[in-house]
């Protein structure tokens, strides 16, 4: 009988950042939903308020007078001031840990070695096979499971290099004081209300990622996955016998 190999897959800085980021993203999403409860309409452009055209009007949760119900928000009952205290405290945790992790990922070559797609992985045929394998819930086994698979890499790169930096930058663009200091931020996103809309879309993207990520963890073996993100040690899934 084969013994499934235990490998050291996730190094300490990755694990620390993962949990710090998970905590801050959850607090940001939950307090962010409370902030959005205060004015659940989104606009494009430089300005936007009740008389103007909103591209999205989030309907109230059934039986509630706000879109996001108490179970989803921090605090649970309507309190914009407290939600802002939570949001802008954890914004510092999120942004600082993101910058630190990006520096680590580049200098330690984690980004290039573990996350960047290898040449052969970038071919459409290879990606298509990976999509089909995911759709059929067939996951890599044996040696192939030592590395992240291409779709997994794309998801992680999307969060690390696109969604998280964009959510921080669009958040900063909503600051009137920083608009004065760095007006280029407004040009970059097309105005404060556009930045607010992009901020919401990025947050929605992060929420979708979390849903997919947790589903994959459950499907791939939650205890093994959890152990690798806590201790670093991961048991390679065994190859199926013919």
């Amino acid at each position: 009988m084969d013994h499934a190999a235990l490998i050291y897959r996730t190094r300490l800085p990755v694990r620390i950042w993962h949990w710090l980021n998970a905590l801050s993203v959850f607090v940001m999403l939950m307090s962010g939903m409370m902030i959005l409860n205060a004015h659940p309409w989104l606009y494009w452009g430089k300005f936007g308020a009740n008389p103007d055209h909103a591209w999205l009007e989030i309907p109230n949760f059934p039986g509630s007078d706000v879109p996001f119900p108490p179970l989803l928000t921090i605090p649970s009952r309507y309190d914009l001031a407290a939600a802002r205290q939570w949001h802008f405290f954890f914004a510092w945790v999120l942004a600082a840990s993101l910058v630190a992790f990006l520096v680590y990922a580049v200098t330690s070559r984690h980004l290039v070695r573990d996350l960047w797609l290898r040449r052969e992985e970038r071919s459409p045929g290879h990606l298509w096979r990976d999509i089909k394998a995911h759709a059929a819930l067939r996951f890599p086994t044996g040696d192939a499971a030592r590395a992240y698979n291409p779709l997994q890499k794309l998801a992680y790169l999307g969060v690390l290099l696109v969604l998280l930096p964009l959510v921080v930058l669009t958040g900063l663009t909503m600051s009137p004081a920083l608009n004065a200091a760095f007006p280029v931020l407004l040009d970059l996103f097309g105005g404060r209300q556009s930045a607010r809309s992009i901020h919401f879309l990025c947050a929605s993207g992060l929420a979708l990622f979390i849903a997919a990520h947790l589903a994959m963890v459950l499907l791939a073996g939650p205890l093994n996955e959890l152990r690798s993100m806590v201790t670093g040690w991961y048991r390679l899934p065994m190859e199926k016998r013919p």
């Binding site: 902030i35 205060a38 404060r192």
Partner: peptide
């Protein structure tokens, strides 16, 4: 100038 309410809306 742009007036930014703490609730999230803006008016110029």
């Amino acid at each position: 100038t742009r007036h930014d309410c703490v609730e999230g809306w803006s008016a110029i």
